[in-house]
Design a protein around this nucleic acid. Structure first.
Length: 454
DNA sequence: TTTTGAGTTGTTCGA
DNA sequence: GTCGAACAACTCAAA
């Protein structure tokens, strides 16, 4: 009773795995043979973001290896490439996972229309989330605007889904590929291993070594106490459903980590309902906040980008970002607060810099993480919560190991003294920059500016 | 409809 | 040195 089509196309995007892949399951069920396709869309390579692109290429190489070399790569605009491939192989259905980002939604609408002109269609199954954005609603049928009630409703929905395995598939062989020109990483940039196997190795290691102490260790940047799954979740080499399935109920570290996954989904949901918040304040009242622009602000922004603000904890974070294409979450908050509240630079500039340098750079999590710190977002930090970069360093890097690892100029200083080198009897070591701003004064300035608009 | 309780991540100041 | 209060109201979710 085979009413299956002879061939279909599975268009991979941010789902670069074979296990627990709803669109692959749908494709395999619908056709005798499946074409594995990835489209190198130049727009996914902007803004520059070399580490993210190189990590993506690593994921694609790993996927291709898992497919015994049968991953077809084509460069170009998906609106042209997808219908062309469908015609080339005689497919009337193209399968893909649903993308809920602003660009992805517009692209998929356009591709769907283009496919219709060749009597084919785009069929979407699954998404990069345990619960698709737009489906978690309060009792009035509206999206949640604060995290805690969202997460309670989300957990109920998320816990219903369980991962599935790799289906039987006959992959189509022998189609030509085209490759984009290689992207060069800056020298000394060190990326984690990419691909589905690497993602699961990372998950296994986290579950074995760190998740039980997650609540106590996750805030210490000198400790390997976080999952480091973010780049893998970004490109779908592991799905959050697979992670959730391996967390136990009622264990502190597990619950805490589940809550971090809920944040990722909350922000995707917020962005789905408010795509304008990629660039604009979620809270329109906060859009009037006065920020600095011009040569002085540019100079302060450059010092921040280059990790030479004179505040060791901030500089360590920014240097880790550039070197590892990743920054510890605690430090992300501190450096973001410093840019926005001490240097008075618009949060969108910092968010753009993060996206350029992070391998895990995800639009929803990044923009809304920044909005939270800047106080412009959903459920944002209260205006008076201004992180003190020295106090944060002393509290979360009490031995100073994190700072010494990333700021070699301070490597000779003992213990927590690295957090305040200007206070040493001998002053800061030669070669370490002076502070670009005085925290106490700029904190007061930030509070004054808030007063102007409230 | 009204009411009530709650809301990621902090810092500073003064007793 | 430690500890609690102040820092602001306001919006959201649900009873």
């Amino acid at each position: 009773m085979s009413d299956r089509a002879p061939v279909t196309v599975l268009w991979f995007r941010r789902d670069l795995r074979l296990a627990d892949h709803p669109a692959l399951v749908a494709a395999a069920a619908s056709a005798e043979r499946v074409v594995a396709l990835f489209v190198d869309d130049e727009r996914l390579r902007r803004p520059s973001g070399a580490p993210r692109v190189v990590f993506l290429d690593g994921c694609l190489d790993a996927l291709d290896a898992d497919l015994d070399g049968r991953l077809v790569r084509r460069t170009g605009d998906p609106v042209d490439v997808i219908p062309a491939v469908a015609r080339e192989v005689g497919a009337t259905v193209v399968h893909a996972s649903e993308d809920f980002g602003p660009y992805g939604r517009a692209r998929d609408d356009a591709v769907g229309r283009a496919l219709a002109t060749v009597d084919a269609e785009l069929r979407l199954s699954g998404s990069p989330y345990a619960v698709a954005p737009g489906t978690v609603l309060n009792q009035s049928g509206q999206p949640f605007k604060v995290f805690t009630p969202f997460s309670k409703a989300w957990v109920r929905l998320a816990s219903r889904r369980h991962p599935v395995g790799v289906p039987e598939v006959t992959w189509v062989d022998g189609l030509a590929s085209t490759r984009p020109s290689a992207v060069e990483l800056g020298s000394g940039v060190d990326l984690p291993a990419a691909g589905e196997r690497a993602a699961h190795d990372r998950l296994d290691a986290f579950l074995e070594e760190a998740v039980d102490d997650y609540g106590g260790q996750r805030d210490l940047p000198a400790v390997d106490g976080t999952s480091r799954l973010s780049p893998h979740l970004k490109f779908g080499t592991v799905h959050p459903r697979q992670v959730l399935d391996r967390l136990a109920a009622g264990r502190v570290g597990h619950d805490k980590f589940r809550s971090e996954l809920a944040w990722r989904e909350f922000y995707a949901d917020v962005l789905f309902h408010r795509p304008d918040t990629v660039r604009r304040a979620f809270n329109p009242k906060m859009a009037a906040m006065r920020v600095d622009a011009g040569p002085d602000a540019d100079a302060r922004f450059a010092a921040w980008c280059e990790g030479r603000t004179g505040y060791p904890f901030v500089d360590a974070g920014m240097r880790q970002l550039v070197a590892e294409a990743w920054m510890h979450n605690r430090v992300r908050m501190v450096v973001a607060s410093f840019l926005v509240k001490d240097l008075h630079v618009d949060w969108t500039r910092g968010a753009a810099f993060f996206l350029e340098h992070l391998a895990d750079g995800d639009l929803a999590s990044n923009q809304h993480g920044w909005q939270w710190v800047a106080g412009t977002g959903t459920d944002a930090a209260p205006y008076f919560r201004v992180f003190n970069p020295v106090a944060q360093g002393r509290r979360f890097d009490p031995e100073g190991d994190y700072v010494r690892r990333w700021v070699p100029e301070l490597a000779g200083l003992p213990g927590a003294a690295v957090h305040e080198p200007w206070a040493l009897p001998a002053g800061a070591p030669e070669g370490y920059p002076d502070r670009v701003a005085d925290h106490a004064a700029e904190r007061a300035e930030a509070l004054r500016r808030y007063d102007e608009i409230r």
